[in-house]
Simulated assay, not measured.
Amino acid sequence: MLLSCNFYGKTFPLTKLKEEKYINETIFIPNGEKQNITVGFSKKDFKNHKGVSGLKYYLVIMYLRKHLQTFGEVYLTLNNLLEECGYSTRSHNKSIYSDFREIIKTELINNGYVTCNVDIFTINPTEMFSLQLSEKKNIFYTKDNFVQFSISEYEKISNSNSKINKSVLVGVYLFIKQYIMDYPSDTISPPRISFPSKQQIKKGIGISSFTTIENAISLLAEMKMIYIRTDMFVENTEEENIYVPTRNVFALDVEELNGDAILIELERIYGKKVYNRNDVPGKVRYLEKQKG
């Protein structure tokens, strides 16, 4: 049986459709709506998807959400998937294709979230195929919805002009974002901030290099996806009257970093008074840069 799909009244056999030009014509989401279209990821997702390869899971899911059609179908080529997620298809790096093929097969098909009309491990990267999403199991929604990731956020990361692996950027961003509580806008609430240490981020997403984590944080800040406050100090536990920097404080809105309420939040962590830089009552000593 020859499978086919319809584009603007014209029917094409899936085995004949090549490249991404057909895909781009099928879906249009206004930019103003992209921030409102999200996928909820769970605590289990954070536990199961780590490392450069595992973190690509988030990119695959967001690609499917962005290109989802009315009846739960997604048409794609592997090349289009890789390129939209920020990976080159010109390097002939088979391991990159392998990561995406494996995620589609083991995470989506084998778990009953989608069915596929081809063998995902043998299909040519330029050949179009379809994924049919299950009506019973929703890959875009989890019971705890621990953190929301929007199409707008996904596009900012996948379109970023950086040598940093896009899956790492996604991992760092979602790890920071997962701890930022989203309180109702009409209520008095604590600052919408988070303060995971670099060691926690490194371990949480399964990346071995502190430098990679630091570079990812810097890039996310340059892109204004996160905002960072670093001018707070706490007394060193080993030396009296010596004050060292606290961990970074992150926010999605720069206004959340204003005021002294953040100092109170940090004091709960350290169990002692935290000071702004200009209020430090002793000598400031900066910590040595971590390696790894």
Rank of each mutant, 00 (worst) to 15 (best):
202 K>V: 09
168 V>Q: 05
243 Y>D: 03
147 V>C: 01
221 A>M: 10
143 K>N: 14
214 E>T: 11
157 I>T: 05
134 S>C: 08
69 Q>T: 13
71 F>E: 14
250 F>L: 08
242 I>Q: 03
220 L>H: 10
147 V>E: 01
51 G>A: 04
71 F>I: 07
9 G>W: 12
201 I>L: 15
187 T>R: 10
63 Y>C: 01
256 E>K: 02
256 E>G: 00
20 E>I: 06
147 V>G: 00
91 S>R: 11
33 E>P: 00
8 Y>L: 12
244 V>S: 02
132 Q>R: 11
38 T>R: 13
159 N>K: 11
174 L>W: 06
273 K>R: 15
211 T>Q: 11
108 L>S: 05
121 F>Q: 05
171 G>Q: 10
150 S>G: 05
195 F>A: 08
30 P>A: 05
152 S>H: 12
183 Y>F: 15
92 H>D: 12
153 E>A: 09
124 N>P: 01
21 K>G: 00
19 E>G: 03
81 L>N: 03
165 N>L: 08
93 N>Q: 14
74 V>N: 12
4 S>W: 12
90 R>L: 12
139 I>V: 15
97 Y>S: 02
126 T>P: 00
113 Y>R: 06
238 E>H: 11
223 M>H: 04
230 T>K: 10
167 S>V: 06
257 L>P: 00
102 E>V: 03
230 T>Q: 10
105 K>F: 13
142 T>L: 01
110 N>Q: 14
183 Y>M: 09
199 Q>P: 00
164 I>H: 08
80 N>R: 01
273 K>T: 13
135 E>N: 13
210 F>D: 07
250 F>V: 03
187 T>G: 02
275 Y>H: 06
104 I>W: 01
280 V>E: 04
237 T>G: 00
204 G>R: 12
68 L>E: 11
241 N>I: 04
288 E>F: 05
289 K>S: 08
51 G>V: 04
162 S>A: 09
99 D>E: 09
222 E>Y: 07
117 N>C: 13
96 I>V: 15
160 S>K: 07
42 S>H: 03
247 R>C: 06
206 G>E: 08
243 Y>S: 03
44 K>F: 05
202 K>E: 12
95 S>K: 14
185 S>C: 09
16 K>A: 10
285 R>M: 07
232 M>A: 09
265 E>R: 06
279 D>F: 09
165 N>F: 05
292 G>Q: 07
181 M>T: 08
147 V>L: 05
144 D>P: 05
106 T>M: 13
233 F>I: 00
48 N>V: 00
247 R>S: 04
253 D>Y: 03
216 A>G: 15
